[in-house]
């Protein structure tokens, strides 16, 4: 699958699942719809960026690092809006970026041809 599309689908899908885990926190259960929508949007944007980065760079480690940073940053913005739960929001958010980055770079199709020496090796 195309890297952009894979990143988008994976980011969105994991964003939905990540948002749904708020169900297990009774204090925020009433806001679950908004949380899921926000988490999905965050995942879609992060996934798109990760897919674009992976298409341009074609390196699994670099895409993983980029995924962690981008998703961690979006998670930080969410936590900063609430003014609390930094750890609870940012850790899983960064892990979602890690999974999205790895899977997009490893399994996504398309990207730069790379230098010939590396392909021969």
């Amino acid at each position: 699958m195309n890297k952009l599309l894979l990143g988008l689908l994976l980011g969105g899908g994991l964003g939905v699942l990540d948002g749904l885990t708020a169900w297990f926190t009774p204090e925020v259960r009433k806001d679950i719809l908004g949380i899921v929508m926000g988490s999905t949007f965050k995942g879609l944007v992060a996934g798109l960026l990760i897919g674009f980065f992976s298409k341009k760079v074609a390196s699994v480690p670099a895409t993983v690092v980029f995924g962690v940073i981008v998703s961690g940053f979006f998670a930080y913005l969410v936590a900063a809006q609430m003014g609390k739960y930094y750890f609870e929001v940012m850790l899983p958010g960064a892990l979602v970026g890690l999974v999205t980055g790895y899977v997009t770079a490893r399994y996504g199709k398309g990207g730069p041809a790379g230098n010939p020496e590396r392909r021969l090796a």
């Binding site: 994991l14 885990t21 297990f24 926190t25 750890f87 609870e88 850790l91 899983p92 892990l95 979602v96 890690l98 999974v99 790895y102 899977v103 490893r106 399994y107």
Partner: peptide
């Protein structure tokens, strides 16, 4: 590797819920 990463994510989620 992908499976281990997903497991790590689920473990982190579970740990946060238990700690919370």
């Amino acid at each position: 590797v992908a499976l281990l990463l997903v497991l790590a994510y689920l473990a982190a989620r579970a740990a946060i819920l238990v700690l919370y």
